[in-house]
Write a protein that binds this DNA or RNA. Structure first.
Length: 734
RNA sequence: GCGCGGUUAGCUCAGUUGGUAGAGCAAUCGCUUUACACGCGAAAGGUCGGGGGUUCGAGCCCCUCACCGCGCACCA
């Protein structure tokens, strides 16, 4: 017997070695599989692009969950003999990375502004390069069978070209425009962010009621009220029926009298407060809409640094939070304060990445118009292009109920603000010279052109990921992928497997970009996974200090055990709790497999299974039972029910193969009765089970496979055939 | 306010088209049985959140209530 089996199972000893073996075989690359005759050239294809981890940090357990699922799918399809591509990459994560480096600099006592754009970007690039190396090595540790020859980065040369190309096309189609709109300004990060990057926090705050001429108005933000000169009420509110739309009156306000205008609009909720409000169009989204509707004046009150502007008079230059109480004090002195409600719950918008309190501002920014009809796409809007494939089931979202969530998001979608005032990211490919504006893929010829300072929302480049990774440049002139390119072969991809929290950020944007640019869906199935929490059900976070390094877990229990714990019992879209006990349990399972293999190999040495294959009745029955299981799980694999398959295999291996079949064989061998039948069955079952288990626990199955006394042209288990004959619709005979 | 999940054994969760409730972990009892004590065997544990309905039959379908979680909108 193989010496390796004499020792107890130690994953640490074999996993790195096995991964190297796989990598050296080249079989992660489908081209090599075809070249070496492993996979037929005309085989069906199966492709997944890895959701690129942010190049700001290290892999966490949530990544491992994602990677385990995808690797399981990829390995299953590769074993089915399909042209299987799993494409790796990392994400430059513009804002997240920019703010991370800014924080690191701050610790060194340096300010972004002081070191300048160029130096800053150098720092970022060094950091990102390191981070990417770490991530890549971690992915190997998990056993991810990614085709490293195709590794991409959302901010490398090719992806940058893709970004510029798409930007220009959208610009030429009039989908990208620059304009003054109300946006979410993050004073802390000093950039604009999109609606999706907001996080709302509920906070108890004071709600003030002030006298405003004959009316009483409420506000939680007195510091925005300096320029309020429009009083809005519901046209049907009888309390105010004596006032007509457009009436003017003079009211005493913070810094003296103001001429106010009455506006009647149904936006007002008569039940709320006094049923009267004043508006601040520059710093409130709803007020802005109203101001646009009636063409009202808009005036800026607060600057980019959250300080009051000269309109605030004596308060000018003060930080808004410092000014608030003082303004209230002044109004009180003037006899204009009516009441203060201390128990008001305010929802405050904050920036996801920096935590800064958002100040709505009217600013000149770049947007993508989601409601403009696109002639090259059958006069459909981007909204429609996003909606249709999901509605028409060309794209299947799992679990199903997220389709409703997706529709709900699209219905409420506004134009997408894509410009950011940070330095790290794809530069907007627009140049200015005096009043001339040039948008192009390359820098314009001639002197004096100055490029737009802004960078793009990181999700702009992420949105291109399914196709920017597959053989860009694209045949732009014909709007088609180039012949024989990866794009033609592997797009649309088969599955995308992100967490549901980025359904809008990413999945929707990929559908938008792919539908618009190449007129094709980016993927057929969206298999959403849930959030992985700690054993108590809390989110993993730095502030809680509950992070667990996956590499430490792998070092202790093995990647197989960790992977198994991430698959079993975790259905699509379901949040799950990480419990080290579960990993421990599956490390026992790998140990069990190891020992069962030891028994089988010990009892089948010098045994030629090809000679005599007659099984006795009970062994035939067992063989049939396993075949039934294979048929069952093959169907379930195709239905994305990995969480059930993994459990069934676990259960069969342990409680049927080990507990019944091995025990029965001991008796037969001991009594020297039907020993051939017993041995044949042991080998055949182990062979089938190793294959079926390989997508889930690739390391240990590969290691045992290498010791199996099978035919001479034995391949790596990685590329062995899945034990089901799809042509005949029944399990393979071994 | 609109919408979506969840509530099943002490814990974590499965439960496919409705047909006498399942797994893992934990806990109990007994085992050095020659692959494995990271083991083996045995037993124990649930009125499937409450109420109502459809059905010969409901964890599963319908209605309703409660609690937990999430998304979106409003928030003067």
């Amino acid at each position: 017997m193989d010496e390796r089996l004499l020792k107890p199972y130690d994953p640490k000893e074999i996993e790195d070695k096995i991964y190297k073996l796989w990598e050296e075989s080249g079989f992660f690359n489908p081209d090599i599989c075809i070249e070496k005759g492993i996979i037929k050239k005309d085989a069906p294809k199966f492709s997944i692009v890895l959701p690129p981890p942010n190049a700001t940090g290290v892999l966490h357990l949530g990544h491992v969950l994602e990677d385990s699922m995808q690797d399981t799918m990829i390995r299953y399809h590769r074993m089915r003999g399909e042209k299987t591509l799993w494409l790796p990459g990392t994400d430059h994560a513009a804002i997240a990375t920019d703010s991370k480096i800014t924080k690191i600099l701050e610790k060194e006592g340096l300010k972004k502004k002081d070191i300048g754009r160029e130096k800053f970007l150098e720092r970022v690039n060094t950091f990102v390069a390191d981070s990417r190396k770490t991530i890549v090595s971690q992915l190997r540790k998990v056993g991810a069978s990614l085709d490293w020859s195709r590794e991409a980065f959302t901010f490398d040369e090719k992806r940058n070209l893709a970004v510029r190309t798409v930007f220009k096309k959208m610009y030429d189609d009039g989908l990208i425009y620059r304009g003054h709109r109300i946006v979410n300004w993050d004073p802390k990060g000093q950039t604009v962010i999109s609606d999706d990057e907001l996080v709302y926090e509920e906070k108890k705050s004071k709600f003030y009621t002030f006298k405003y001429g004959p009316f009483e108005i409420g506000t939680a933000r007195p510091e925005t009220k300096f320029g309020d000169k429009y009083v809005v009420m519901h046209p049907k509110d009888e309390r105010y029926s004596k006032w007509k739309h457009g009436d003017k009156l003079t009211v005493e306000w913070i810094n003296g009298p103001i001429e106010a205008t009455i506006i009647k609009d149904e936006i007002i909720d008569m039940e709320f407060g006094t049923g009267v409000m004043t508006i601040t169009p520059w710093h409130s989204h709803e007020d802005f809409v109203l101001a646009e509707k009636y063409k009202l004046d808009k005036e800026q009150i607060i600057d980019k640094y959250s300080k009051l502007l000269p309109i605030a008079g004596e308060f000018a230059g003060m930080k808004i939070l410092d000014a608030r109480e003082k303004i209230v004090e002044k109004l009180k002195t003037k006899g204009l304060l009516v009441s203060i409600d201390e128990n008001y719950i305010n929802r405050i918008a904050t920036a996801e990445r920096t935590g800064g309190i958002i100040e709505p501002q009217i600013m000149l920014q770049w947007f993508i118009d989601v409601n403009k009809k696109i002639s090259s796409r059958g006069n459909k809007t981007l909204k429609e292009l996003m909606l249709e494939p999901v509605r028409d089931n060309k794209i299947n979202i799992l679990p199903d109920h997220f389709e409703k969530v997706y529709f709900n998001w699209i219905e409420n979608l506004r134009d997408w603000c894509i410009s950011r005032q940070i330095w790290y990211g794809h530069r907007i490919p627009v140049w200015y010279k005096n009043k001339e504006v040039y948008c192009g893929i390359e820098t314009p010829e001639g002197e004096g052109w100055i490029q737009d300072e802004d960078t793009l929302d990181t999700w702009f480049s992420s949105g291109l990921w399914t196709f920017s990774t597959l053989g860009w440049p694209f045949d732009y002139a014909h709007g088609k992928p180039k012949k024989g390119s990866d794009l033609e072969t592997y797009h649309p991809t088969s599955v995308i497997n992100p967490g549901y929290e980025i359904l809008f950020f990413w999945v929707a944007r990929m559908i938008l970009m792919s539908q618009y640019l190449i007129g094709e869906i980016p993927f057929k199935v969206v298999y959403l996974h849930g959030i992985l929490r700690d054993a108590k059900g809390q989110k993993f976070s730095k502030s809680l200090g509950n992070g667990i390094d996956p590499i430490e877990v792998i070092n202790e229990y093995g990647a197989d055990a960790l992977r198994m714990s991430m698959i079993v019992g975790i259905g699509p879209g379901a949040d799950s709790k990480f419990d080290i006990q579960k990993v421990k349990a599956y490390s026992k399972f790998t140990n069990k497999i190891w020992n069962a293999a030891r028994f089988v190999l010990e009892n089948t040495k010098d045994f030629d299974s090809t000679k005599e294959t007659e099984l006795d009745e009970e062994d035939k029955k067992s063989e049939k039972e396993l075949q039934n299981l294979i048929t069952e799980i093959t169907k379930e694999m195709d239905e994305y029910k990995f969480y059930i398959v993994a459990e069934k295999l676990y259960h069969y291996f342990w409680h049927t193969f080990a507990d019944i079949i091995i025990e029965r064989s001991k008796k037969k061998i001991l009594e020297n009765k039907n020993t051939i039948s017993a041995r044949v069955l042991l080998l055949s079952q182990l062979t089938t089970l190793l294959k079926a288990l390989h997508p889930f626990i690739p390391f240990i199955t590969e290691e045992i496979w290498s010791m199996m006394p099978l035919q001479k042209d034995k391949k790596l288990l990685l590329v062995e055939k899945w034990p089901f004959d799809f042509a005949q619709g029944k399990p393979n005979d071994n």
